[in-house]
Every structure is written in C-alpha cells, then in structure tokens.
Design a protein around this nucleic acid. Sequence first.
DNA 1: CAGCAATATAGCCATATGGCAATATCAAGA
DNA 2: TCTTGATATTGCCATATGGCTATATTGCTG
Lengths: 103, 103
Amino acid sequence: MHTALQALSDPHRMAIVSMLADGERPAGDFVDALPIAQPTVSKHLSVLREAGLVTVRKDAQRRLYSLNPAPLAELDAWLARYRRFWTDRLDALEAHLDKEFPQ
Amino acid sequence: MHTALQALSDPHRMAIVSMLADGERPAGDFVDALPIAQPTVSKHLSVLREAGLVTVRKDAQRRLYSLNPAPLAELDAWLARYRRFWTDRLDALEAHLDKEFPQ
DNA sequence: CAGCAATATAGCCATATGGCAATATCAAGA
DNA sequence: TCTTGATATTGCCATATGGCTATATTGCTG
C-alpha cells in the first residue's frame, strides 16, 4: 500500500492531482494529458485510489475521478509544525531565538 | 536525483525530518533513533541533502544536520491551492452548527 | 446482438530503491 | 604516530516501481 506522500512522490501522479484541483475529470483526460500509455495511467489512478487521494464515480463507461482532500489536509497539518520556519519575520526571529537559546 | 516529495516519501526520512524540527542534530542521533544500520541512515541523509531538505555542518568527526525549510515552503505553497477543499468543509460545518445552535 | 468506446487487469521487463556488511575517511586524543 | 570514534562510501542483494503490450470488462449504440 502507498501512503499519501508516496503516492504524491511520482510526478505523473502529482500532475493528475493538480488536474483534479479544478474539479472532477474522466480518466481519459489524464491519458490525453500525460505522455504515458493508458494502462500506465490506470495503474497510477489505482495507486491514488489506494492512497485515498481520489474517489471515483461511474458514468456509463467512464470513470469520473475527483479529489479526496483528507490526506492533503493531513499533510498540511504535518507541515504546520514547520511553517514557523518560513512564514514571517517574527517567526524567523522566533526560530532564530529557539536555536540560539533552546528551551 | 530526488525531489523534496520523493525524499519525504520514505518513512525513515520523514522521521529524520521530524527530528530536525526541534533543531540541529548529529548523524548519530538518527542512527540511535531508527531501527536500521548506520550506512543505511547515511544513505538516507545523502538523499535528504540532494533534495535540499537538510544542510550539514562539520564539528570534528561529527556531522551536524539541520533543516532547510525551503522545499517544505514550496510544498506548502503547492498545498495552498487545495486548502479551500478542507477549509470550505470546516466553514460549512461551522455554518451548520450556527444554524442548529444559534448564538 | 455486433461493434465500438472507455477503462481496468494481467503479465512481463528494466531500473530504482532500501537494506546490509565491509571498508574507507578523517579528526581527536593517548 | 597509533588508536578510537563518527560518518561516508562501496558493493552487493531482494524487492518495489513505473513502463509497456495484450486482453478482459462493461456499457452505449446501431
């Protein structure tokens, strides 16, 4: 099984997720957009499904994919711990002081 | 070469980055903390270095690692595009609660 | 029902990845 | 200078990964 981060670590899967930021899309859209064969795209979609990053809905022969934001929200929460490193000057000062005077 | 996301996609490397949130640490700390051999840790550190996620500083025989937040800031910026997906949901919940339990 | 369209699955291959033990490097101290 | 400690590098192995072609599946449509 892939974790959300492992799923996102492939550039083609990142591209798929990026396309989904605009909304639901059929699998064929990804086949058209990416320079890889249809079965390869299908496998990437299956990885994204297992990672919980996307959900699917049937529409006749088509499969409409949309984003499931939960894992991204988790990643965002994890990043929160580091946000102080780059946010603003006050935070930078704080980080500096933390480093200079730990505790 | 690994991208930041690829570097983060390994759980042991994630653990290393997490440990660095508290500040600079010698390589040996990671060897002690992780259930893998020293050369394996060293290889992970090299991946993190190539990805620009950490920087090193020499202190006698020791190598002191610290976090380079830039790639994390980039990841945060990328995530910004998706943030509305879960803040919207929180806003909706808030609205719902306001309606159910006014005041 | 035949055929087409959209997608998934199966089976295969080359390469990347993460792990290890052995060894090299290099600074500090005796 | 010899030894010890901390880390990196090398060489190897098993498995995971991403790619492909061929084929199966499923639902329209004529």
